[in-house]
Design a protein around this nucleic acid. Structure first.
Lengths: 334, 334
DNA sequence: GTTATCCGTGCAACCGGTTGCAGATGTGGG
DNA sequence: CCCACATCTGCAACCGGTTGCACGGATAAC
């Protein structure tokens, strides 16, 4: 078990103590509560520590204080472009407070999500659960052990930040109406998804208000392929515009339409949601922006606030959205 | 500082011990080395533990053993679609060994990358550095404290896994040649990037061998916008096909060409690299697949092997790539 | 000059596990 | 029947910090 040591011996607090001629407590205080020590004592200790190359052992500190300075962030699928911005936002906020973040990738599996949480629980102060696939009961179970903030999941009594697409989707429908569209389609996402229910309801509600006819096209799971398949039904339903559950589906719709000889936006307008592909496609897609990075940031901020004792822990933060107009919408032909 | 406690008292090993009528050591062994204990003793302890809801404290264990079962994974930018697959692969491999992974997002900043590493070092057994923006000296500095595996960075003496695009890019050029293209362009990436140098060299080398004329179009930073800008030069250089440094740039090129009234693939063939957008665009893009997930997986695997004492730690693993043909290439018009 | 107060530091217990060593018990061989 | 040996379990020290408490000296108040 030699493990090819490189010189991997970290100096401990005791070594600093004896080198500086003080007790271990003083060294500890020099780092964590210097105001309790004499000014020059602190300086001397710090100097010695620097010489030796001492750096406080995070783990030991965590063990005795219970302050881990770690949080866990669990997402269903890192590779789904919806999540990276959330991760990025969360990271940035954690960095501000010198917190480290564990990332968990549940692979859309509740069982795996559970396992990850169990593994993390022992070394974090709190958890951010993004689009959790867990049952409400399991979420509550975990929330009983550590502070949890939910993103895109609405469980009463728990802290949560929700991306509220209703405004953005409303703008989308209004936009289509103003362009002159009278019959539109909504290409739905997963039936049990909170976001999907909200988006669908908004499309229907606003359309009704404006007197537009709406066709809902169901989709088992949101994906490029689902979008391609949906395109045929879109054509059949003789609408002139479509709003899709997410950008990936929208992109699939565009491909499917093209296969049938229709081009976007001249023959059909298409609007996506989440704005994750946005500027990286051609034609650049009009989409409802989700501000996901802010959601991640807000979630961590909420968690950290709670840990430092301020907030109450059952906050419900709704982030608004808006339509980003690009090049996939146009007035209907004729 | 009441912190609204929820009942957040984790049972300790001592509680299990007294509840089961054994010593703390036995409880410890029941979990970590059950073969040292009598069969029914283990069962009894485990049963009691389950009742009480005991779960070994990760941190305490790490402190006394030095085995943290944590690794750090640092990437330049989570939101860049090239990285999530790597993260995913790394995660999956770590999961297999019950390792937790800290994720660090350096934001392309070497200073930040340094800071993250310092913060992680105290609680991980090793580090995977993806496309590190650090100087070689800094990397070596960190490598002296903990085992490090590099991804997409070639530093002698350190373990590294490299995505070797030469084969895939060669296939791309050969493919274009077979379609009948005689003049092609390479839209370059960052000059200092190892990947870019390799890709560019391959395009030039293979073109020369096949007798194709090659125009290299420089780009400050790879992005959609850079691709759009490059499109004009592509047209000016009267080539019939272009290979781009990455998919994002390729997508920009396609948009730029469209702005000028050219459509892909009938007027111009375009090939991307990394295959991150691949199937989610229209037309579906022909691209050189990077197998990034495997790179992440391999890096963690290498690290874990090293930690368990087997490998030597200066491995150099090159992952090959291949062309994925989709719909953005065609024989040149006339 | 004596006593109350404050400041700076050290002692020792503690966080929750792990592990080398030794003692207790039981089994088989001579 | 006794001894050697294997098996199971407990004792106590240790991992590297933190922190309540007490103590000694200096300063201020009287």
């Amino acid at each position: 078990m030699t493990r090819t040591t490189v010189s991997r011996s970290t100096p401990t607090i005791s070594q600093v103590a004896s080198a500086a001629g003080v007790s271990r407590s003083s060294v500890s205080r020099a780092f964590s509560r210097p105001e309790l020590l004499g000014k020059e004592t602190v300086e001397r200790i710090l100097a010695v520590a620097r010489d030796i190359g001492y750096v406080p052992n995070h783990t030991a500190r965590a063990l005795s204080t219970g302050r881990y300075s770690n949080i866990a962030l669990v997402v269903p699928d890192v590779a789904n472009p919806f999540f990276p911005p959330i991760i990025e936002g969360a990271q940035a906020e954690a960095d501000q407070s010198d917190f480290c973040v564990f990332l968990g990738n549940s692979g859309e599996s509740p069982r795996h999500e559970d396992a990850l949480l169990d593994r993390f629980m022992g070394q974090v102060e709190g958890v951010v659960l993004v689009s959790s696939r867990l049952s409400e009961a399991r979420i509550r179970h975990h929330a009983a052990r550590k502070p949890i903030v939910l993103v895109n999941r609405d469980v009463k009594g728990l802290a949560r930040v929700l991306i509220d697409s209703s405004q953005g989707v409303e703008q989308a429908v209004v936009h289509l109406n103003e362009l002159g569209h009278r019959r539109i389609a909504y290409v739905a996402g997963p039936a049990q998804s909170w976001s999907n229910r909200q988006r669908r309801a908004t499309v229907v509600r606003v359309s009704k208000r404006l007197g537009l006819a709406v066709t809902v096209i169901p989709t088992p799971v949101p994906s490029y392929a689902a979008g391609v398949a949906a395109a045929k039904q879109i054509i059949k339903s003789s609408v002139t515009a479509a709003v899709a559950f997410d950008d990936l589906t929208a992109q699939g719709v565009m491909a499917g339409l093209a296969e049938q000889g229709l081009t976007v936006p001249s023959d059909m307008s298409v609007i996506g949601c989440d704005d994750v592909l946005g500027a990286s496609t051609y034609p650049a897609m009009t989409s409802v922006s989700s501000r996901s990075a802010e959601a991640g940031k807000a979630a961590v901020s909420l968690l950290l606030d709670f840990l430092s004792g301020s907030s109450l822990g059952d906050a419900r933060l709704a982030l608004d959205t808006h339509l980003v107009m690009r090049q996939t919408t146009l007035a209907p032909a004729t």
